[in-house]
Amino acid sequence: MTKHKIYTMSFSSVYPHYVAKAEKKGRTKTEVDEIISWLTGYSQEELEAQLEKQTDFETFFASAPELNPSRALIKGVICGVRVEDIEEPTMQEIRYMDKLIDELAKGKAMEKILRKNN
């Protein structure tokens, strides 16, 4: 089976789109970085190193220091697919991130995006 194309794309090539989507809706790069850190466990320095190395998505998630256990609370539809029903682990992680960035762009409060008080 061939890998999905996004697995081999560099995370740094998509990251500016996450930031642009957030900023277009009045949110910030800092909030995008906070979401990524919450989801993956990367510190700001580690995230910047991954961006600089142009790490691909598959490696980005495989190398994540600590995937947040609360990410299982992320529910909903992204690209027409329910994120909780995605069986392939790497694709599910990518879609979790997409969902969180969508929630940010839609104006959701950070504490809700980061699944606090759940």
Rank of each mutant, 00 (worst) to 15 (best):
Y18G: 07
E93F: 10
D56K: 05
V32W: 02
F60S: 02
K112N: 12
V77E: 15
K53T: 01
T30W: 09
Q54S: 12
K3I: 09
C79S: 12
E103N: 12
I86L: 11
F11P: 00
K108L: 13
K53W: 02
T30A: 15
E58G: 08
Q92N: 09
R95H: 13
M97V: 10
T55I: 06
Q92V: 05
A64H: 05
D102M: 11
T59I: 07
L67P: 02
P89E: 08
D56R: 02
V32R: 00
P65Q: 05
V83N: 00
N118L: 12
I74G: 05
I113P: 05
L47W: 06
V81N: 11
R71Q: 14
K21F: 08
I101K: 05
P69H: 03
F11E: 01
Q50H: 09
P16V: 03
D102C: 09
D102K: 10
R82G: 11
A109P: 01
I78W: 10
L104M: 04
S37K: 09
E103I: 07
N118S: 12
V77N: 15
E87P: 00
I36R: 05
R27Q: 09
G76H: 05
I74N: 02
L114M: 00
T30M: 10
I36D: 00
K29V: 07
V14Y: 11
E34Y: 01
G41W: 01
E87G: 13
G107L: 00
A105N: 06
A20C: 08
F60Q: 04
T28W: 06
V83Q: 03
G26Y: 03
A20D: 14
H4F: 11
R27S: 04
I74K: 02
E93D: 14
I94Y: 13
R82E: 15
S63P: 01
E66L: 13
K3S: 12
P69A: 03
K25L: 11
S13V: 08
I74S: 06
L67D: 02
L104W: 00
N117S: 14
E88G: 01
V32K: 01
I74Q: 05
K25E: 15
E48D: 15
I6V: 13
S13Y: 06
H17T: 12
I78D: 08
A22Q: 05
L51F: 02
N68P: 03
K25A: 15
I35G: 02
E48Q: 15
F57E: 00
L100V: 06
A22E: 04
T59P: 01
E111N: 15
A105E: 08
S63F: 09
W38L: 02
E23M: 09
G107H: 01
